[in-house]
């Protein structure tokens, strides 16, 4: 009896000591912060610093010889028209995608926010594309928009929208638009999810108070719904723009940057430089410039739109 008690109290003591040890501020801090710190260091920080460092070297892809050349890579890059072309295509691709995604995603969210029969089923179906991998979306779009037997061509001709079959990804005029629409197909859902979550958090009493004040449906949308969405728009615009600016997978699956460079955005350009021409140093310089461009754009964005002011709506 007494030994059991002794064992029991010994175990309790050990447990208490362990708890005491784990509760120490420094130990707790280390245990909770260290794992994500390590992950961040090796997955983000080291590659970023590595790439920035590599952009000052001439690197042979096959012999791992690094030769310091200072800012020569940047000079080459900044004097090459093809880089500026790629950069501006990135802006077009990101800008076009963001506009379509925000407009379409928000509209869808507003529709799904209404209450109607089977609204949960409708929401499930609307959000379903978000579960499909980007590459699969890309291949589906390729087949659907196929210039010989794609269903989009077939339907468009049948309802008289176009005269003959169109090669959406094959022509320089339409490839960029087709790529933007394909990527927006899925990524609009991201906007929908964010906006819908915000919409559902707007208390019904605001709308009721506005109705009692005499506000029409349009005035309620303008004065209550939109101001409440400001905060979510701020963050969604930034996230989508950065993501789309850096998008590689959709475009690579759809066009590999073609036809004749019409969809060669900056990430595709970097890939081509790195693995097409094996000039790793210049590829690293491309990535470094993109990183800086996004950094400056994000800082300006925060400065200009002052998110602290928008937070008040929450």
């Amino acid at each position: 009896m007494s030994t059991i008690n002794k064992h029991g109290s010994r175990a309790r003591e050990l447990r208490d000591e362990a708890f005491e040890f784990l509760s120490k501020k420094k130990v707790l801090a280390a245990l909770t912060i260290l794992p994500p710190m390590l992950l961040f260091t090796f997955v983000n920080l080291v590659p970023i610093v590595g790439v920035i460092g590599a952009s000052f070297f001439s690197i042979n892809a096959f012999s791992n010889e690094w030769q310091w050349i200072g800012v020569a890579n940047f000079e080459t890059l900044l004097s090459s028209d093809s880089f500026y072309d790629a950069l501006s295509r990135s802006v077009v691709y990101a800008g076009g995608s963001v506009v379509i995604q925000v407009v379409f995603g928000t509209t869808l969210a507003l529709l799904l926010n209404r209450s109607f029969k089977f609204v949960n089923i409708a929401r499930t179906f609307a959000i379903l594309p978000y579960l499909i991998p980007n590459a699969v979306i890309g291949f589906m779009a390729l087949w659907m928009l196929n210039s010989q037997w794609g269903i989009v061509n077939q339907l468009a001709v049948q309802i008289g929208l176009i005269q003959g079959y169109v090669s959406f990804f094959g022509s320089q005029e339409s490839a960029m638009l087709a790529a933007i629409l394909t990527s927006s197909w899925k990524d609009s859902i991201f906007v929908t999810v964010m906006v819908l979550a915000r919409l559902q958090a707007i208390p019904e009493s605001f709308y009721e108070a506005a109705k009692m004040s005499g506000a029409t449906a349009y005035q309620r949308f303008r004065d209550i719904t939109l101001p409440n969405l400001k905060g979510v728009f701020f963050i969604v615009l930034l996230l989508r723009a950065v993501w789309m600016f850096n998008t590689f997978d959709y475009i690579w699956v759809l066009t590999q940057g073609g036809p004749r460079g019409a969809t060669t955005t900056a990430p595709i350009y970097a890939y081509n430089v790195a693995f097409g021409t094996s000039r790793l140093g210049i590829a690293a310089a491309v990535s470094t410039v993109l990183f800086l461009v996004l950094l400056v754009a994000a800082v300006l964005y925060f400065r200009i739109f002052e998110p602290s002011e928008e937070v008040r709506a929450e």
Binding site: S205, E208, A209, P227
Partner: peptide, 15 residues
């Protein structure tokens, strides 16, 4: 054209 006061007040927080 009726005015209403609510239990939860319902002032618009963004205005």
């Amino acid at each position: 054209n009726l005015a209403m006061m609510f239990q939860n007040i319902a002032l618009y927080p963004h205005m």
